[in-house]
Design a protein around this nucleic acid. Structure first.
Length: 963
RNA sequence: GCUCUGGUGGUGGAAUGGUAGACACGAGGGACUUAAAAUCCCUUGCCCGCAAGGGCGUGUGGGUUCAAGUCCCACCCGGAGUACCA
């Protein structure tokens, strides 16, 4: 009987479905294991072969864990809210819900064909009101909590209100937009509006006027990770900085915990590093530099009064942040960012016009221009001076856009000798440069001769007053200590991580459960959730520039009935307008892994029992492109729910594997430039300049050989194509590019399943190379694994049918092959090396094919071993061997270490009067066993005649025997 | 620039510090066949040699080791992330 995958695969897929083989319960005496894939965004293009790579890997591991006796949670769902569906709606007028539904249906069909073990009873969709109810609910909790730095966790806003009423802001250390200082009396005297304004300053989900990434092309605001080089990641439209009133999540409050948490998880170093860089923690000092008021005769009149409001400093001064406090003796100027609030106050009359012009110019520059011209030095002198608090020197204050408003305090002390940017600035404006650090204590030179600054944090301080001669690290500490003693600064930590902007001026997303009363945001009651997305006639922004929800007729909140009513009813007494923006894509994906634990619960996000059982995700598989987006937001989300006592683990994803991107392998034909109808085979081209490479559909190319007839039919302009062939074939060129329709290099998994079967596709995707590695898709090798499956099938077929060829029970040799295979496969699967696993199966099958005895004893465990990889064929063979339950109810075979002991000694080497034998030994082998094994080995017998004088034994590896 | 990765045949890739190139593709040769497909067998890192055999080989140069693709130092070249972050 032939290997008829087309019949076998659908049959077992039905069997699994009908028998609920993949159904998972939340209580079990078995140990739990949670394997999660990053759920897909169902785009209109469908799946290509790159998408299932990670799903296949996780499916193998999930099935393996199950065979090892674990209760495995392996769910799948859809990240269904997002821009492409909405862009499509704008173009065609089709409701995004309809196109999304269609796309999901297609995804499901494609996924089903590959034979995954997902528990579809647990499917979630982010656009489903029953799901986004909990996205909105989490938002409400974020709104109702603040971050207390003293307790180092989120606490209810009510706690804060009580505190303010009792003692004002005194002693409060909380994450906030702006540090406020007020007394209990003040708080108690304030009206509702003022109090709400103050509370907003602390909420973890807050509304504020902030500079945002406004993308006119998409008509929405974008988060930092959605913008690259001043262009939107989606669509590539220009992005500008704009001040807008937006919802944000105070993710920066969790910056330290997000850094610390990386120590506890089992992720790749590179991904941890990506997150550390993104969070950007730097230690340093905040230092107050007093303004030199006496010498600033021309300073505008109000400045003295302005400066004295800074508390605790009675002296007029402003704050800078530095990571190099040790270089404070090398400060030769200060720089403020163009947005700095002190500029207007301190600029002298003479410099005023110049400074104003510069500030205007800098503010109007687009983000893109600014980034493109990073190397260009620009700036202007304010005419004002500050005083170096340690040297009491007078130093000029400049304005330049190389100092950023968003980081630190927007003001720096410039040390041109030891900072490359300060160095460039000093050279450009001819400002003094003073060396204060040297590699050796006496290695001082004239900075005028330098070509670059000395930025490294190594060496010794020189010309630096009381720290001269100290190592850089000691000097840092000494300077900060002195600064703290003097009361002019303190140690501090700065993060690069910004709060996440949470509003999107779009339709296809979760509505905010928020309405506005007198311009103040109020949340709708929790029991009224979900606040469902209203219908609109038009998906574009409104004429007034409001988001698409402005088109909704029924989008007002009635506080009497707690229902959504028509906008015409708005009276601002009991009926109020609802928020018009929607939540971003990362909202729905930030907590979905928790919802899978208890997906049909209408009373809670997830039950205590469910999360208590599953804890967190044991293995998460997905792309590294989410390193600075989803994976940060989800960790933040989880930590917040942890503070609320809901999540039981602080980190959501224990182990994480990034599957490498599958690139496309494009094929080219080469058209002669001299003769437009002539195509020259690759090997015959003398000079690449004579030909034009043209992308050709990879589906009409086989092993880089062009199917000439299909090429002629492919496009009308090639109907009369002529060819210069080599050996009667037209050989195409190839290149690795992104997989995309326009390059004609997209490989659809459905075609491969139809041609070779799902098991072949699964094995081949794994065989291609390590899961983590990026690699081009190349269908050429798929025949190899398909041949293997045919051979594997035949191995069973002949063993079961042709009894006459069997000569007896499995031999020791045969069993040894089996036990080696069990060990190798187990080890490989444990370390996610699925490509070598496939090779091991091939070797095993080759060896067994040649053996002439009854193989059934061997084939049974082999069916279980291969089941995670090729579930359909394994299930079929398992049943043919006489089992009537699923192979996935079997248990993983164990190997016998005794079977693996080598009885021949390898590589005897003689050196220094010692005799070395290298021998394969099982892990638990003792020294005595090793000596016995060596003695027993025929190769060693001639060397080792008596008892050895001395034995040096390294377990598993080496035995040195002194003769 | 900084950080992280990687560099092995014609190709994808194997190799807990222990016979480098497993396994597969491709290529070449052969068997079966009227023929083709399918299947099976042999060869296939490079160089010298009819052969037996010998020499060279994991980006480059050093080092540690009885032993280095693997560990250490320096450099070169790809890929990714990030970027006036003080």
């Amino acid at each position: 009987m032939d290997y008829n995958f087309g019949e076998i695969e659908p049959r077992w897929q039905n069997y699994w479905r009908e028998h609920g083989v993949y159904h998972v319960d939340n209580d079990s005496s078995k140990p739990h294991y949670y394997v999660l894939d990053m759920f897909p965004y169902p785009s209109g293009a469908g799946l290509h072969v790159g998408h299932p790579l990670g799903y296949i890997a996780s499916d193998i591991y999930a099935r393996y864990k199950r065979l090892r006796g674990f209760n495995v949670l392996h769910p799948m769902g859809y990240d269904a809210y997002g821009l492409p569906a909405e862009q499509y709606a704008i173009q065609t007028g089709q409701h995004p819900a309809i196109t999304t539904e269609q796309n999901i249906k297609r995804y499901r069909e494609q996924l089903d064909k590959i034979g995954f073990s997902f528990d579809w009873d647990r499917e979630v969709r982010t656009c489903d009101p029953k799901y986004y109810k909990w996205t909105q609910w989490t938002f409400l909790q974020l709104f109702k909590h603040y971050y207390d730095n003293t307790e180092d966790k989120a606490l209810p806003i009510a706690t804060l209100e009580a505190r303010f009423a009792k003692s004002g802001s005194e002693g409060l250390d909380a994450a906030c937009t702006e540090v406020l200082d007020f007394s209990a009396e003040e708080w108690n005297s304030w009206d509702e509006a003022r109090r709400q304004q103050v509370l907003m300053n602390y909420r973890l989900a807050y509304l504020a006027d902030i500079p945002v990434n406004w993308c006119a092309g998409l008509g929405t605001v974008l988060a930092n990770d959605e913008v690259v080089n001043g262009l939107s990641v989606r669509g590539g439209y220009p992005v500008e900085r704009k001040l807008m009133r937006q919802w944000s999540l105070r993710i920066s409050a969790y910056a330290q915990r997000l850094v610390d948490g990386l120590e506890q998880v089992d992720w790749t170093d590179s991904l941890k590093e990506i997150q550390r860089n993104w969070i950007g923690r730097s230690e340093g000092a905040a230092v107050w530099f007093p303004l030199d008021v006496k010498s600033n005769a021309n300073v505008l009149p109000g400045v003295q009064a302005y400066m004295t409001q800074f508390d605790p400093q009675p002296v007029p001064s402003f704050e800078i942040f530095t990571t190099r406090p040790d270089t404070i003796f090398g400060v030769t100027f200060m720089v403020l960012c163009p947005e700095h609030e002190l500029i207007d106050q301190i600029t002298t009359v003479e410099q005023r016009q110049q400074v104003q012009d510069y500030v205007t110019w800098a503010k109007n520059r687009s983000e893109r221009e600014r980034q493109a011209e990073v190397k260009k030095v620009s700036g202007v002198f304010t005419g004002a001076y500050a005083v170096n608090p340690l040297t009491e020197e007078r130093i000029p204050i400049w304005v330049s856009d190389y100092v950023l408003a968003g980081y630190g305090t927007g003001a720096i002390m410039a040390v041109p000798a030891h900072d490359s940017r300060d160095f460039a600035f000093a050279r450009h404006f001819n400002l003094p440069i003073r060396q204060v650090v040297a590699l050796e204590k006496d290695a001082v030179s004239d900075p005028a001769t330098w070509t670059e600054s000395m930025d490294a944090k190594t060496g010794y301080s020189v010309n630096s007053g009381f720290v001269t001669g100290m190592k850089v690290k000691e000097a840092m500490k000494a300077v900060i200590d002195r600064i703290e003693e003097m009361g002019i600064g303190h140690r501090t930590v700065n993060f690069r991580l910004r709060d996440a902007i949470f509003s999107r001026q779009r339709y296809w997303g979760e509505p905010f459960p928020v309405y506005y009363k007198n311009g103040i945001a109020y949340t709708i009651p929790e029991e009224c959730l979900p606040l469902e997305l209203p219908e609109v006639k038009e998906f574009k922004p409104t004429a007034t520039g409001e988001p698409p929800l402005g088109h909704a007729e029924k989008w007002a909140w009635d506080t009497k009935t707690n229902t959504v009513v028509n906008c015409s009813a708005i009276d601002n007494k009991t009926v109020f307008p609802l928020e018009l923006s929607t939540m971003p894509g990362f909202a729905g994906s930030s907590g979905y892994y928790l919802r899978y634990m208890d997906p049909r619960n209408d009373e809670a996000y997830f039950s205590k029992e469910a999360v208590g059982y599953w804890q967190n995700v044991d293995l998460y598989v997905g792309g590294a492109e989410h390193g600075t987006g989803h994976l940060i937001y989800a960790r933040f989300w989880n930590k917040f729910l942890f503070d609320l006592g809901m999540a039981v683990k602080e980190e959501p994803f224990q182990k994480l594997i990034n599957q490498g991107m599958i690139q496309g392998r494009s094929n080219f034909v080469y058209r002669s430039k001299a003769d437009n109808g002539l195509f020259i085979s690759k090997g015959l081209i003398k000079n690449m300049d004579d030909v034009t490479p043209i992308h050709v559909d990879i589906n009409i190319v086989d092993n880089d050989v062009l199917d000439i007839e299909r090429f002629r039919q492919w496009r009308p302009e090639f109907a009369d194509a002529r060819f210069e062939l080599e050996d009667g074939k037209y050989v195409c060129g190839w290149e690795v590019e992104k997989m995309s329709k326009s390059m004609y290099n997209v490989q659809n998994p459905d075609d491969l399943v139809a041609r070779y079967g799902a098991d072949t596709l699964r094995l081949y995707e794994m065989f291609l190379g390590p899961v983590e590695q990026a690699k081009p898709w190349d269908t050429n090798g798929i025949e190899g694994v398909h041949r293997f499956l045919k051979k594997f099938w035949k191995l069973y077929d002949t063993s079961l049918t042709s009894e006459t060829s069997l000569t007896g029970p499995a031999t020791k040799e045969e069993l040894k092959v089996l036990h080696q295979t069990i060990k190798k496969i187990t080890d490989d699967v444990e370390r996610f090396s699925f490509n070598t696993s496939v090779s091991t199966f091939m070797i095993c099958a080759n060896t067994l094919t040649d053996m002439k005895c009854d193989k059934r004893e061997v084939l049974k465990p082999l069916a279980v071993l291969i089941a995670p990889f090729a579930p359909h064929i394994a299930e079929e063979l398992w049943h043919q061997l006489g089992n009537d339950t699923s192979v996935f109810d079997a248990s993983w075979p164990q190997y016998d270490p005794q079977m693996l002991v080598e009885d021949t000694v390898k590589y005897p080497v003689q050196f220094n009067g010692k005799m070395r034998f290298t021998i394969d030994l099982p892990a638990d082998c003792t020294q005595a066993d090793a000596v016995a094994a060596v003695k027993a080995a025929p190769d060693a017998a001639k060397w080792l005649t008596g008892e050895p004088k001395k034995v040096i034994f390294v377990p598993k590896k080496i035995i040195n025997i002194v003769l």
